[in-house]
Nucleic acid binder design. Sequence first.
DNA 1: CCTGATGGTGAGCAAGCGCTTAGGGAGCGG
DNA 2: CCGCTCCCTAAGCGCTTGCTCACCATCAGG
Lengths: 207, 207
Amino acid sequence: MGAAEETGVEEQPWGQVSPDAARRLLIAAVEAFAERGYHATTTRDIAGRAGMSPAALYIHYKTKEELLHRISRIGHDKALTILRTAADGEGTAADRLAAAVRSFVGWHAAHHTTARVVQYELDALGEEHRTEIVALRRESDAAVRGIINDGVRAGEFDVPDVPGTTLAVLSLCIDVARWFNVAGRRTPDEVGALYADLVLRMVGART
Amino acid sequence: MGAAEETGVEEQPWGQVSPDAARRLLIAAVEAFAERGYHATTTRDIAGRAGMSPAALYIHYKTKEELLHRISRIGHDKALTILRTAADGEGTAADRLAAAVRSFVGWHAAHHTTARVVQYELDALGEEHRTEIVALRRESDAAVRGIINDGVRAGEFDVPDVPGTTLAVLSLCIDVARWFNVAGRRTPDEVGALYADLVLRMVGART
DNA sequence: CCTGATGGTGAGCAAGCGCTTAGGGAGCGG
DNA sequence: CCGCTCCCTAAGCGCTTGCTCACCATCAGG
């Protein structure tokens, strides 16, 4: 309960995908892409994990790349929502930055298979789909930069290089998807709390 | 001169690889792997970039995976050397931590194509090769953790969670390889300086 | 001049890839 | 009962993949 409530990440990840067979294929694709990478995953593998024949995939998706795009799009939407919710929340800039990092990192840890695909398989997207996704990523960057700028203006933060620090903060959070391991000793919430503290130090928040 | 001298990264990256044809193939592989990823790169592409026929690759390397292993091994050796040089240097823990981050990040930025392969294509290695490389990575972790521990013992740093902070510092540095772009506005040295400052803040170094 | 080592080529094999196509069975309105 | 729609499968097409093999050019030593 703690993780769900606290990070504000819930309501069943792929609930919006229908029909049921399409959702099963998509979940199978997420697992396979996260384990082996997009290019090393075969359509036969995806269909097999979903308990279907290879041809069934093409009833619901035009190509293998469309599957990746759907996953990437949903994931980026979720990430952006998380960041904006925190950015538009109440409290000081430090409160909002901590909340943003806590929930963003919590999501990357709790859904690290999805996050791995979302964050590290961008290059496998086709030209058009990639530019669409890159636009979403720029909005995420803007959300975080907004909080940091608020803190600087309010005299709460000491940040010599706002764009550079924004980049570093996002980079730090995103890379959680690469190393986080379910078998590890830390829960998503613990990592979120640790990272929120580290980020507040990076921006020189007066404690 | 600045970058080379300052980061201590030099002496021609692949000088140790011989004969010449093997080195050309290896450099071609680094470029191709960095651009498209290991699985999306074909042996014909590598050979083509090196100006050779596809068959020539197999005179110098047994498999495509051996190429990746050679690259990964040399890169990890270099990374470990950089960290150990800084860790064994002179000065306070803060001095050595800053030097480690500055040179480590500088290397990831300046050689971001190599670093991308080294850091993000681990999973494509075979079982044995991967465990060999993972051992090197644990030593890198130990080097950084050593500096931080020194700082804590000396009362220079304020770090509640040393293993977690070590992980975060390395993660932050490594992820530079993912986003760094030559066309961007920052030089490798500038990124190194920015990151060294951020990391000192993360460990609560008294300034 | 021959010989062997070295480092290369052109052609191609077996396997696996993304994707298509012809057809089948379950459910349902009429 | 028919006939239509919706999902799904078996089979397989055309192509690319990692890798091999028979053969050749260059050159140093005897």
